[in-house]
Design a protein around this nucleic acid. Structure first.
Lengths: 189, 189
DNA sequence: GTCTATAGCGGGATAGAC
DNA sequence: GTCTATCCCGCTATAGAC
């Protein structure tokens, strides 16, 4: 009847994932919000694994878009870095949400292998992109950190994910403070 | 028959929590490993919520012990800091495990309120303890960071949790590198 | 393509035997 | 205190109507 039911389902699933975890939402939850039976969801996504992979594809696309957006935000590494972090934080909106990739990473051992693969792909893209930016920042003489850009990228990704996650049990204010703290730590030597 | 069944159950539950997530293990999983029926578990922990709270009590105790251990490791802030971080990393052992508090924090919206309270308690203790150590380190002129010790404590906790979590989808080697990176970032100005 | 009815299984939890 | 048999519910998934 609607035609883009598939997208509606994806949108609701995305929200449920971000406010709970993958293991803790069901087809029933989605069906309830659409006023249909859970079996109807299976017409669009035969298994929950398929739904999960569709979500991951969507995140992959969003991630790539965020890189473009960050690179359009300015020419300096700092411009790009700040736009990237802001983009991640923006995806949270309220304190009950958190980064979907972080969530799925936590559930790594509990979800189907096809999904694990999708998660690792996005995580490695993030790391590669951030490494590139940090290298640029160091070359420009504007970013300061120890060791390789790659190690620093791991550090920052861990911090950002940890902070996005902590925002759930704590406050969003805290999140912004923590992000600011990362920035400061690289601003001067 | 055994007498310390309760502790056996707790130990298995702790391991299941760390390798999965709270939502994704069941009484059945525990019962299977003990060769009894899941109903028997209910004799020891009437609800899963009760089991979760018992786990949290155990973690609280371990956390307090880790503070003592860290403070016995030496008199300087660095001695204590390193012992603390090492203690957290030690609890991981293999790459399929992660920090239980991190896990429960992620599931904050999905677990009973009594457990949420326990989690927040441990998290705030960690933050308070680490803030104290960072203040000491700054006063000694040995630790360098921007802003308040409290903000830096948030940053470090987020990083550690993020890194412990990332170790699950990635490698433990990476974890150690990331930890080393945190340390380096505070060693010189 | 979109949906309902229903199966089949596994979840947490209770009653009650020992 | 320790356990089994059992209940009821919600889960994912299939069959088949429209």
């Amino acid at each position: 009847m609607v035609g883009d039911r598939k997208q509606q389902i994806l949108d609701i699933a995305a929200e449920l994932l971000q406010t709970r975890v993958f293991s803790a939402f069901s087809y029933q939850d989605i069906a309830d919000r659409l006023g249909i039976t859970k079996a109807a969801i299976h017409s669009h996504f035969r298994t929950k694994e398929a739904l999960g992979n569709a979500l991951l594809e969507q995140y992959l696309e969003k991630t790539v878009n965020l890189y473009s957006e960050a690179e359009s935000a300015g020419d300096t590494a700092w411009d790009r870095f700040n736009a990237f972090v802001a983009g991640l934080v923006r995806s949270i909106i309220d304190e009950n949400k958190t980064c979907p990739i972080t969530l799925l990473q936590v559930e790594h051992n509990v979800i189907p292998e096809s999904m694990q693969k999708g998660i690792r792909k996005i995580l490695s893209m993030d790391k590669a992109w951030l490494t590139k930016i940090l290298k640029q920042g160091r070359d420009e003489g504007e970013m300061f950190f120890w060791g390789t850009p790659e190690d620093q990228a791991s550090l920052i990704l861990a911090t950002v994910q940890g902070a996005l996650m902590a925002a759930r049990a704590g406050s969003v204010e805290m999140l912004e403070k923590t992000m600011a703290q990362i920035t400061k730590s690289m601003q001067a030597k």
